[in-house]
Design a protein around this nucleic acid. Structure first.
Lengths: 168, 168, 168, 168
DNA sequence: TTTT
DNA sequence: TTTT
């Protein structure tokens, strides 16, 4: 019913960006999140780095392609997805990844390893079906949808034309 | 850049559902979240109930209208919105509300005070721009968009036609 | 830096609860989250169920033991943890799980398959280091810490004794 | 039951840091989150900036004092808190704020307006009751708890001494 | 393996 | 004003 992942971390290596046979752009990002843990045994504080694999499709893959590099600090909101596959010995294997719904580039523009002149955006399927910008942020000038807008069975929650004429 | 609220609680009284002059449906829900706090002064555990005002537009307002009642337990995902208004003495006043992007009815169907025969759904602007159902969840048969699907500047993240032909 | 998972779903089968050699209680829960997806290929809405493995330690394991059963609807907040292990053929394998930090039982008490008279709680490491109760929520009477309170390098954020004498 | 706020934005002006009569440090931060919205009326994309008031106590206030300045980009996790007060005309007024549980400084160290030589941390009441560091981050060397470690009614979820001897 |  |  709710399957939500929120990550902030640093990208471990330059992302892979490819295109499916059907012509859909997709990116893969390895993201590290480090935390400090108190170890009961040794009575010491230790560091633990967790590595996440993020999959980003279409427009998000495009933004990754243009602005995300090894070292980039990013915010990801997405969902867990476990894929089943067969290894070379024909054993069933499972891989858990994060399917991204939103991505934000963090820090200042000058932090962005890919910001050699180009602007950089946030991006994603925003709740209101329309937000695609970033704050504190170098903006993406022309957010090119990688895919045509598809019909939406459910209308997203969008503020009324004039929020001031709330009937309450 | 990120402005996200996640609430689970009980609805304090039957929601108000109205229509703006422009014909847009909007609902207001009062939601209680209770937590236990340890009070340093008295060395006791105390309860604190926080009351939230949730605003839901269009399709979400429709679901509230049909399925949410006083006592309902719901999940809300949304954003903070502070509105400015003038009181009777012409003083500037501020009211902070949660603008809902997603709502889920929790518990079993039999828990739903409004489930007198009718099915009940989850609803909301889902990341993939297409999911509008609920699990564990009596489904909404005809999620009627209160508004026509609008053009989307940014394509949402949607799994490719065949997730199995990931090119990685 | 931030590694957060939020799940609401139904438990797929009765949890396993065990004790480590060191005498620490630990539980494992399989949780289903179902979403509806719009399939571009078939132009149809399809259902996808994702299965998550949750690990809960100590006090949370205890609550699972007492109140969580197949079919229970729960809220989980935790972190992703990928463990490395060797399979029978000495191949490196990875398993991704959710290490729970907070759990809440959802729905009414009567929904709880384990509520045969006994009360049931929410539980978890709350931000303020002191809240351990649930609302809408049959309470756990005596939240027994499974372990002695350990020293805390960092003081949690706790409201001052009197929130009314905020100096602002 | 769940009352959670997650914010990423930029600090609007230098924070106020004070001490209560009881000697407890507390900070107030004004944080801006900007989003782009599609306006149905004008058919245009507009920007909306939301301003949040964050209250941070004790250790978190200390970190604000040392490392947060106008322009800092930060991550906040906290809870909504509405306070009631009387205005000069003896009218009841309400102010909604975010009570912070966790804070992270984002971007690189060089982005930090307060990083004139000094290191900068993340901080907060971490789930495991022990994590207080930041990744991709200049670390705080000596996380001084502003308050003595208090007794904890509920044991936080902490990985067992050896995660490898999970009994599953 | 859950839930509707 | 909810829920336990």
């Amino acid at each position: 019913m709710v399957n939500k992942v929120i990550l902030i971390g640093n990208v471990g290596l330059d992302p892979e960006v490819r295109t499916t046979e059907g012509g859909v752009k997709v990116a893969r990002v390895r993201l590290a999140t480090t935390e400090r843990l108190f170890d009961r045994a040794s009575n010491e504080t230790k560091e633990h780095t967790e590595w996440h694999t993020i999959t980003l499709w279409r427009g998000l893959a495009d933004v990754v392609d243009r602005f995300v590099r090894k070292g980039s600090q990013i915010y990801i909101e997405g969902r867990l997805r476990t894929r089943e596959w067969m290894d070379k010995d024909n054993n069933k294997r499972y891989t858990t990844e994060i399917l991204a719904d939103t991505m934000n580039l963090l820090g200042r523009r000058s932090d962005n390893p890919a910001s050699d002149g180009a602007p950089a955006p946030s991006y994603g399927a925003q709740p209101q079906g329309a937000s695609y910008g970033q704050q504190g942020g170098y903006q993406q000038q022309t957010p090119r949808p990688a895919a045509a807008p598809q019909p939406q069975p459910a209308a997203p929650s969008v503020p009324a034309d004039d929020p001031d004429d709330l009937p309450f």
